[in-house]
């Protein structure tokens, strides 16, 4: 067992972990942070995408011990307020990507959504004004089986415009 200290969504945790424990298993099974999902075992689907020191990673490709001393941000910490609000208009504190996935219907079952949003957030950090093609290529490591991606691409570009300070939905 190895001791790790990892800051997840602003809270610092210290735990003894097995060296083979994946970061995503640490998040889900040790910390109970189940907002990050597992969709495969070959690092293809991207459902487990989080930010490690500000860059997106598939948390099934990182061992918990490799994240020792690092900062991890997950979907659960993305909204500026609790974000757990009820139905309807409780979207005020949400990240523009969360809001845009909602308004553009960029999700159906929602299982890929946490990873998709975290990957998109990193894409927009690198490229604040991506073309449709750039969004499609930027998200090719994240699989969605429900939406056919049309509305995911729309949502990412809508959020990008909002993050650039442009008026959205006019």
């Amino acid at each position: 067992m190895t001791n790790v200290q990892i800051t997840v969504d602003g809270t610092t945790y210290e735990d003894e972990v097995e060296p083979r424990l994946l970061l995503v298993q640490y998040l889900r099974d040790v910390l109970g942070k189940t907002g990050t999902n597992i969709g495969c075992d070959t690092s293809n689907c991207g459902a487990c995408t989080v930010h490690l020191d500000g860059r997106s990673v598939k948390s099934c490709t990182v061992l918990a011990v490799q994240a020792d001393g690092a900062t991890v941000d997950t979907i659960e910490g993305l909204a500026s307020t609790d974000g757990a609000g009820g139905d309807g208009d409780a979207t005020a504190g949400w990240h523009p990507l969360q809001r845009a996935f909602h308004t553009e219907h960029g999700l159906q079952c929602g299982y890929c959504t946490p990873g998709m949003i975290m990957a998109a957030a990193d894409l927009l950090r690198e490229n604040p004004d991506p073309s449709e093609e750039e969004v499609r290529h930027g998200l090719e490591g994240n699989l969605c089986r429900c939406t056919g991606y049309v509305n995911i691409v729309k949502a990412v570009r809508t959020a990008a415009a909002e993050l650039r300070g442009e008026e959205v939905g006019a």
């Binding site: 907002g35 990050t36 999902n37 597992i38 993305l78 757990a84 009820g86 969360q98 219907h105 959504t113």
Partner: peptide, 21 residues
């Protein structure tokens, strides 16, 4: 009408079966 389902799904608060232990 925007979906009532979305709030918990976009914020990481869904209850998938594997979340139940």
């Amino acid at each position: 009408r925007l979906r009532k389902e979305d709030a918990r799904l976009v914020t990481g608060r869904a209850t998938w079966t594997d979340n139940i232990t």
